Simulated assay, not measured.
Amino acid sequence: MISKFFSKSKPIHYIVVSVLLLLVFLYAKLEIFDQGANVFFFSKQIGLFLISLFSIFVFDFFVTRNGLTKKNSYNIVLFVLYIAILPQTLLNTSILISNFFILLALRRIISLRSQKEIKKKLFDASFWVALATLFYFWSSVFFVLIFAALLVYVITDVKNYIIPIIAVLTVVILVVSYFIIRDWDILEYALGLFDYSLDFSALNSKRIIIGSTLLLSFGLWSLFYYIKNIKAKMKSYRPSYKLIILTAILGLFIIAVAPLKNGSEFIFLFAPLSIIMTNYLEVIKEKWFKETFLWVIFLTPIALLVL
């Protein structure tokens, strides 16, 4: 039933996904709402919800535009279900905004496949990653993705390797200028960016352990089929599929080194994981297995509510 409903991309799916995201967002913010609210608080929460919603739409746009999945809505419903499984991903404002910028960057990086407007796309992607870094330092690892894209898409012009540096310098100049105008200590801000932690004890909760284990297990299982089927894709599309794997690896790296581990850092893994698992769902021939697979992911957030 679920697999058939989302097997074709339809406008109603965006409504369903939006409503589902709203319910998850309200549940995640329930404790904050209880602490009292004012006009500024509600304005901020509306803004954060819109950022979360736009993140889904940006994700769906570049996935569809670049043929990373077939024409279905599995990718966006999986993305929202991952958030439902780990609603902590909605609680860190900085990471939420940073992930939105990373998705914008990923959109430009994957579009390099067309070999059109390369310099503009490189600047845009680097600019977005640089902005994401201002909100969450470890999102800077996605600069690796930009240079990896230059290699896999065989973009050999040396000038193109300088463009990301120019984009970063542009953001640095703007930030430094802003700090000078506000008379803030930029050195203190810069030194506070490099925190990291390898202590995972903060993730020792039933909800996070069960949720992350489910996602990583299903993701690893799907990855085997994803890698296996890359060879079946058109030659021009293969580099894009490889970049998605690298994106997932970078997301795992962020989870590993995140200075404050509370589950919110898992959001960087949701986009590549949704693409990988959608590709797996597309090759499953047994309808009952596909249906069971989706129902497990769908019912997991509900089951976790009782923990």
Rank of each mutant, 00 (worst) to 15 (best):
W288T: 07
S236N: 10
V24D: 10
F40Y: 09
L273G: 02
I254W: 07
Y237M: 07
F40E: 13
S98H: 07
S236E: 14
F57C: 03
L269D: 09
K231S: 15
I110K: 05
I249F: 12
I186T: 06
L131W: 08
Y178A: 15
S3G: 01
I118A: 05
I85G: 08
Y82N: 10
T300P: 12
I230Q: 01
K261A: 03
K228E: 14
V171A: 03
K4H: 13
A258S: 15
P259A: 11
P259R: 00
E117S: 13
V17N: 13
T69H: 05
F41H: 08
V158S: 10
V296C: 01
I165R: 00
L68E: 11
Y225P: 01
I186A: 08
L246D: 05
K4L: 08
L96G: 08
L26A: 07
I227W: 01
A232W: 00
A105Q: 05
L246T: 07
F253T: 08
V176K: 07
L187A: 14
F5K: 10
F61M: 10
E286A: 12
F49Y: 15
L191Y: 14
N262D: 15
V24W: 04
W184L: 12
L104R: 07
Y14Q: 09
I95H: 03
L86V: 15
I255S: 08
G211Y: 02
V171G: 01
K261H: 02
N92I: 06
L134I: 11
L169K: 05
Q115H: 15
L150S: 03
K116Q: 14
I275H: 03
L68A: 04
Y189L: 10
V283E: 12
F41S: 07
I95K: 07
V63W: 08
F59T: 12
V63E: 04
F179S: 07
I302M: 07
K242R: 06
S274K: 05
S205E: 08
S98Y: 03
S98I: 08
I249N: 01
N204G: 08
N75I: 02
I245A: 04
A105E: 03
L307G: 09
A256D: 01
N75W: 02
I267G: 01
D157H: 07
S274T: 05
L48N: 08
N204A: 13
W288N: 10
K119Q: 11
A258T: 11
L260Q: 11
F61G: 02
Y189M: 10
